[in-house]
Structure formats: C-alpha cells, structure tokens
C-alpha cells in the first residue's frame, strides 16, 4: 500500500503519509508567506514610470498587466510567442550560449518533468486513498492503483532523472573548472546548485536502495524508506519553501520579466 512508502525503519523514525502531508503543507505555507513578502517588496514600486511608489500588493500585477499591454518598439511579440519560445524553449539563452542553454534546458526540463511526475503520483495516491475510504477504490482502473502507476512512471522517472543529472554535472563543471564562472560565483549561486545536487543525488540513492541498482550503493532495503523520506523532505523544502528566499526565485521572476518585456530587447 502506498502509505508504507513513507514508513520509517523503526517506530521512533516512523513518519506517516499524514506527516509528510503536513510537511508539504508547511512548505507551501512558507512559500506563500515568502511570495507575499516578495509581492509586498515589489509593490514598493510604482504602477507607472515616474509615479509615486504604490506600497500596494496589487502594484506588481497592475504594472505587469500595463507593460504586457503596452506597445513595444522592438519586439512587439505576442504573449504566446513569449511563453513558448522565450519561457519554455529559453531562446534567449540559446542565442547567447548553446552549451549554457543545453545545461539550463536539461535542468529545467528534467526538473519540471520530475515535478509533474511526482505530482501525478501524489494525485493517484490521493485518489486511491480517498477511494479506499469512500469505497470506490475497487472500481478504479488498474493503472490508477499506486503500485501499478509507480511502475508505469519508472521509465520516465529514470529518463528525466538522467536528463536532470546531465544538466547538473555541466553546471557543477562550469562552476568548478571554468575560471571566469568560478571567480564570479557567490553564495547566492552556490546554494542553488548545492540544493539541486543534493536533491538529485538523494533521489538516485533512494531509488537505488529500493530497486537494487548500483546507485543504491548496496545499502540494505530497510534504508529505502528513510532515504526516500529524506529526499521528499529536502525536495519540499528546497523546491517549494525556499524559492522566495533564494536564487530559486528566478524560476518565477524570469518568466515574469520575459512577459513584462515581451521577450526582451
């Protein structure tokens, strides 16, 4: 049963599905508070050039909407073009450096895909759990059983994990071995990469222990639940809670800047 996935190795370490849910909600709560603080901070600006600072939490969405509707003298491109080519495809990075684009795109693509798969797994577990309580679980199609669904996700999970790993390896290489990049690196940059790396490695290790693959370092199967738990906890904290307070905010701010400036100059 899905709940066992989160079980600890001993009663003392045991963490249930409910506790993980609490942690997830706590992370979302911290994220929301952080975003509120950011919106308040951004709202210290005005809603038009040369106007007085607003101080309203609505100043940012108002100014964003104004800029998005304003005629641009150079790239007066549509929101759809900005969304697909600049936000999803990250054309501006590709124009500057194909290597950096490849690195960033693999991290972005791997990360978002794994996030989507985790979310899908979570939803299936919820549907099944509620189904068991309410009594409709037996009428669900077979693929919506958590065990079956997890197996279905096994290959895509592997593929996107490798994609993410490739991007992270390039990022680490650049930070460590490219002099110009290394010299310009500050804690603000390092924390992002360290967080990503830890999440990815713990994900591989947790999977390796469970499946017996080599990246489990032959650790006993009993270690699988706490390893998975550690991965989940750190992912929730880094992927959600820490976003507004760190360089992870670029995941939100860059798409907004691209939209505001219609893909840029």
């Amino acid at each position: 049963m899905s709940m066992e996935y989160f079980a600890g190795i001993s009663d003392a370490l045991r963490l249930t599905f409910v506790q993980v849910m609490i942690l997830a909600n706590l992370s979302i709560g911290i994220f929301l508070i952080g975003m509120y603080i950011n919106l308040k901070k951004w709202g210290m600006g005005s809603t038009g050039y040369g106007l007085e600072p607003s101080g309203s939490i609505f100043a940012f969405p108002k100014m964003l909407a104004y800029q998005m509707s304003e005629h641009a003298h150079i790239h007066n491109q549509s929101v759809l073009e900005t969304f697909f080519l600049d936000i999803l495809f990250q054309r501006r990075i590709l124009q500057r450096s194909p290597l950096r684009w490849f690195m960033h795109f693999t991290i972005f693509f791997g990360w978002m895909a794994l996030f989507a798969l985790s979310l899908a797994m979570f939803l299936v577990e919820m549907i099944f759990l509620i189904g068991e309580e309410v009594g409709y679980a037996h009428s669900l199609p077979e693929f919506l059983e958590p065990v079956v669904f997890r197996e279905l996700l096994a290959v895509p999970n592997d593929v996107f994990s490798y994609i993410l790993l490739v991007g992270i390896v390039i990022a680490i290489y650049r930070r460590l071995f490219m002099t110009k990049v290394r010299e310009a690196t500050i804690a603000y940059d390092s924390i992002l990469l360290i967080g990503l790396t830890v999440i990815t490695i713990t994900g591989f290790v947790a999977d390796g222990i469970r499946t017996g693959r080599f990246w489990g370092f032959d650790m006993p199967i009993e270690y699988a639940p706490p390893a998975a738990l550690f991965h989940v906890v750190i992912s929730l904290l880094f992927c959600i809670a820490y976003i507004p307070f760190s360089k992870y905010i670029h995941m939100i701010a860059i798409p907004l800047a691209l939209l505001a400036n219609k893909g840029g100059e």
Partner: peptide, 8 residues
Amino acid sequence: FTAVQLME
C-alpha cells in the same frame, strides 16, 4: 522604481 523593475 516601478513594481516590475523591483521584480526584475
């Protein structure tokens, strides 16, 4: 500063 600039 506009609100968008502070976000930038």
